[in-house]
Design a protein around this nucleic acid. Structure first.
Lengths: 143, 143
DNA sequence: GTTAAAACATGATAAAAATCATATTTAAGA
DNA sequence: TCTTAAATATGATTTTTATCATGTTTTAAC
């Protein structure tokens, strides 16, 4: 469903949503220990996200990664799209090309409703929305 | 969520449910072309399922794979367990160890309800149930 | 301007998943 | 009993994913 890379990227982005700002940049090292993801690997992921303007960064001393208020308007689907590409999430559980409402595969009806809700949320809730939920104790970011 | 291997295995088992019987065995070659999966790879998967008694087989000429009436009582979860192991489906979307009802991760509430429904169906509907649904036109097995 | 701290770029390695190949065993049928 | 058709067993190869390593560029602070 989601690649490891996407999971890492989501965790990192949510971490930044909670712990960074224009003025308070965070460096890979700190993010990686906080969310428990190998540093060099995470660095690569963050660079991709940065290149696609999903997150922000500044080089040099006192530099690091952060989310601008514009970045906070992105969705987790934007993150996933950059890391996994668009196809992965949208394909049928059994990877059947021809599976659709008219000719649903045997697992379609079981999984379809959840998946749509899942995708709907991923592409409609902003990163800011998620961070607010975490701040208010509705959800959590354990390691 | 499901590995490619599991998807292949599920397709093969459902194919057998519809097209085989104690007397009418089907050989890998025919299954593989029917469900569009590489023959040698599928052979390996079927052998694992056979060893675990999820499906039945006889060697030699006129041999092949089939589902006994006992086999038809198995569930797709049995298939998945053999191919992917038990952990894969049950883990959190973000692979967070500590994600649970008490401390749900940000995606937990979005995906949890229907995932449970999915898993419930996988382990409670028999392969026979699925084949009946296909026979009655409720669901389909395209390629 | 020199130094140092950070992201950025690129590529090498390792591990896992998917795929292919080949020899062995079993059983039917002549 | 011999041949042949099938599954079975085993392992090699390829591809993808995950991980590691190292050099380059940018920028703050002195």
């Amino acid at each position: 469903m989601l690649s490891n890379s996407s999971k890492y990227a989501i965790k990192a982005v949510l971490y930044l949503a909670l712990n960074s700002s224009e003025e308070k940049r965070v460096m890979v090292k700190n993010i990686s220990t906080a969310i428990n993801v190998p540093q060099a690997y995470l660095a690569k992921l963050l660079q991709e996200l940065s290149k696609e303007r999903i997150i922000s960064s500044v080089k040099g001393p006192k530099g690091g990664f952060f989310l601008s208020s514009l970045n906070l308007q992105n969705t987790l689907m934007d993150v996933i799209d950059v890391i996994d590409g668009k196809k992965r999430l949208n394909s049928c559980v059994l990877s059947l090309e021809k599976c659709d409402l008219d000719k649903p595969c045997p697992l379609h009806n079981i999984i379809s409703p959840v998946k749509h809700k899942f995708i709907y949320n991923l592409q409609n809730k902003t990163i800011k929305d998620f961070s607010l939920e975490i701040k208010s104790g509705i959800s959590f970011l354990p390691l």
